[in-house]
């Protein structure tokens, strides 16, 4: 009986290993394909075989050397700067809003929460044109500042997950601190924030990644000012009809350069990300 149970377990585990391995391969293979072909030396956009025949660093070198009208290093720097600034503002916004909604009690708090939820449900593209002209009225069109504002202005609306996280921190802590004479300001900085590492990391991560992936709003704001493009629209430009034939390999190389830092960051922070998303997600 015990033996057969053990045997059954081994069999079922083996099946699971096989399934996981197959699925793992399916999931990773497009990325492997991307990396392999970003080093491909021969051919143009497409080749009729899976594994490249020869490899070189030319695609990567070209990204940094041929910077005529497609200035990849410049775009990379832009994106990095914008992502850092937007990340700071967004993270602060999200934490402030979710802390206020979760820990502070004030009049019309629930109304604010409901309005916040409602606003998040409009399709974002609707408002692009209006945002563009508002920025223009502020004399900011085609600038990186405009991008930072766009990426961080709405961040406060994404309070649900971190509010869910803050909700799980016992209120007794606040009360004890209040008895000791701490102001709410001090409670926020000295008690709640240090306890909220997972959600802070989660927020930082998501808001840092945002600017690397947006290829729509940025295009509208920057128009013809290619110097201020971010990598996302830059790479998008490389696969437009005008460039695709000659630039597809560079597109793949550029994509790898975008994906690598984000992936590394993501894997390093994975633990917190999981904690943040589960704790906040289950509650919120």
């Amino acid at each position: 009986m015990i033996k057969s149970y053990k045997a059954r377990r081994i069999i079922s585990n083996t099946i699971i290993y096989i399934v996981l391995a197959v699925l793992g391969i399916i999931w990773v293979s497009p990325l492997v394909y991307l990396v392999l072909h970003s080093f491909r030396a021969e051919g143009l956009a497409t080749v009729p075989y899976l594994i490249p025949h020869s490899y070189s660093f030319d695609n990567y070198i070209n990204l940094f050397v041929n910077t005529g009208t497609l200035n990849f290093p410049r775009w990379y720097l832009n994106t990095f700067v914008v992502a850092c600034c937007a990340c700071v503002i967004s993270t602060l916004s999200v934490l402030m809003v979710s802390y206020a909604f979760s820990r502070l009690r004030f009049k019309s708090r629930k109304k604010f929460i409901n309005v916040g939820m409602i606003l998040g449900m409009f399709p974002g593209f609707m408002t692009m044109i209006a945002i563009y002209y508002l920025l223009k009225a502020m004399n900011l069109s085609q600038t990186l500042v405009a991008l930072v504002i766009c990426y961080s202005a709405g961040a406060g609306l994404g309070f649900q997950i971190s509010k869910g996280f803050f909700d799980t921190i016992p209120r007794a802590l606040d009360e004890a601190a209040t008895v000791d004479g701490a102001t709410r300001n001090q409670i926020f900085w000295k008690i709640i924030l240090p306890m909220s590492k997972p959600i802070v990391v989660y927020t930082v991560l998501t808001s840092f990644i945002g600017p690397w992936t947006d290829f729509i709003l940025c295009k509208l704001i920057m128009g013809d000012n290619r110097d201020n493009y971010t990598v996302a629209i830059g790479l998008q430009l490389m696969v437009s009809n005008e460039f695709k034939v000659n630039y597809f390999k560079q597109f793949m190389a550029g994509s790898v350069l975008v994906a690598v830092p984000i992936t590394v960051l993501f894997l390093m922070m994975q633990k917190y990300y999981v904690e943040g998303v589960t704790a906040g997600g289950v509650k919120g």
Partner: peptide
């Protein structure tokens, strides 16, 4: 790991 690769890529 696939989450970390931007979707447009």
């Amino acid at each position: 790991i696939t989450i970390a690769v931007p979707q447009f890529v």
